[in-house]
C-alpha cells in the first residue's frame, strides 16, 4: 500500500496540474477574502440590515476567511475527477494496474492522496485568505480572531476540500470521458446544486431535504450561513452533522468508483 501511495504522490506532483491548481486556489482565496472583507466592512453594507449580512466581528472573520472555500472545493473536485480521469484518458491506468494489480489498493492510495492534497490546498487557500482577510479586517478596526471557534472552521475546511476531491474521484470513474466528467461535476456543483438548494426551501419538505445537499452540508460544516430564495436557512445542520453528511457523500462516491474500477476491463 505504501508503494502505491508513493507512486500516486509522484504521479500527482510530476505534471503541471498541481501547481496550476495551487495558483488558482491561492489567488481565489486571497481575492475573495479581500472582496468580502472590503464589501462587508464598507459603510453601505454596515449601515443596512440586509439578510444574512455578517455584523459581528466573528461572523465577519468567518465570512472573509472561508470565502475562498467555495471556489476551492470546486477546484479540488476537479482534481479528484482528473486524478482518475487523466489515467483513463492517457491510458496510464494500464501501467498503474500492471504495477499494482490489486485495484482496490490503487484506489485506496488515490483516496489517501486526495485527502492529503485536499488538506494541502486547503491550507494554501486559508493561508492566503486569512492573511488577506485579517489584514483588511484589522485595518478597518475589526478583530479577526474574536471567536476561537474560527479555528475549528479553518481546520474543518481542510477536511472539506479533501472530501470534495473524493466526490470528484467517484465522478471521474462513473463518467469515463474526462472532459464530460469535469464539465458535469463542476457544472452541477457550481450551478445546478446551489440553485436546487435555494429553491427547495420554498416548500417545507424541500427545506428539510435541502440541508443534506453537499453545498449546504459544506456550509454547515464551516458554520457559514446558507442563504436561499426564502431567506437565510434557519434549520442548518450542526457543524458535525454537516461534516458527517459530506463524509457520507465522499465515502459513497469513492466506494462506487472503487467497485466499478475493480470490476471493469481495462482496454
Amino acid at each position: 500500500m505504501s508503494k502505491a501511495i508513493k507512486a500516486e504522490f509522484r504521479k500527482f506532483f510530476t505534471t503541471r496540474l498541481w501547481w496550476g491548481m495551487l495558483i488558482a486556489i491561492v489567488v481565489a482565496g486571497a481575492a475573495l477574502a479581500a472582496l468580502f472583507a472590503l464589501l462587508f466592512t464598507s459603510d453601505t453594507v454596515m449601515r443596512g440590515d440586509g439578510m444574512g449580512v455578517p455584523t459581528s466581528d466573528a461572523d465577519l472573520a468567518r465570512t472573509a476567511f472561508t470565502s475562498g472555500i467555495g471556489v476551492g472545493y470546486l477546484l479540488t473536485l476537479a482534481i479528484g475527477v482528473m486524478t482518475v480521469g487523466a489515467e483513463y484518458r492517457h491510458k496510464t491506468i494500464t501501467a498503474t494496474f500492471l504495477a499494482e494489480p490489486k485495484r482496490s489498493v490503487v484506489m485506496g492510495a488515490k483516496t489517501i492522496l486526495l485527502l492529503v492534497v485536499g488538506a494541502m490546498y486547503g491550507a494554501a487557500s486559508l493561508l492566503a485568505s486569512v492573511a488577506t482577510g485579517a489584514a483588511i479586517l484589522s485595518s478597518r478596526g475589526h478583530e479577526p480572531f474574536a471567536d476561537p471557534e474560527i479555528w475549528r472552521t479553518l481546520a474543518l475546511s481542510l477536511l472539506v476540500l479533501g472530501l470534495w476531491a473524493l466526490i470528484g474521484l467517484g465522478v471521474g470513474i462513473l463518467i469515463p470521458n474526462q472532459v464530460a466528467a469535469l464539465l458535469i461535476a463542476v457544472g452541477v456543483a457550481w450551478i445546478v446544486e446551489p440553485i436546487v438548494g435555494a429553491v427547495l426551501p420554498l416548500s417545507e419538505i424541500g427545506g428539510s431535504i435541502a440541508r443534506y445537499l453537499p453545498s449546504q452540508a459544506t456550509n454547515a460544516t464551516l458554520d457559514i450561513q446558507t442563504v436561499g430564495f426564502g431567506g437565510p436557512v434557519t434549520d442548518q445542520l450542526p457543524w458535525w452533522g454537516g461534516a458527517l453528511v459530506l463524509t457520507g457523500y465522499a465515502v459513497v462516491m469513492a466506494l462506487i468508483g472503487t467497485l466499478r474500477t475493480v470490476r471493469s476491463d481495462i482496454s
Binding site: A7, R10, H90, E100
Partner: peptide
C-alpha cells in the same frame, strides 16, 4: 515486464518521471 501500447504515457509527464512512478509502485 510488459509494454502494451506506445501511447500509454501522460503527455505532460517526463519519460524519467513516468519510470519513477513505476519504480515507486514496485519498490
Amino acid at each position: 515486464g510488459s509494454a502494451l501500447e506506445a501511447t500509454n504515457f501522460h503527455p505532460g509527464r517526463s519519460g524519467r518521471n513516468h519510470l519513477r512512478v513505476l519504480a515507486d509502485a514496485a519498490g
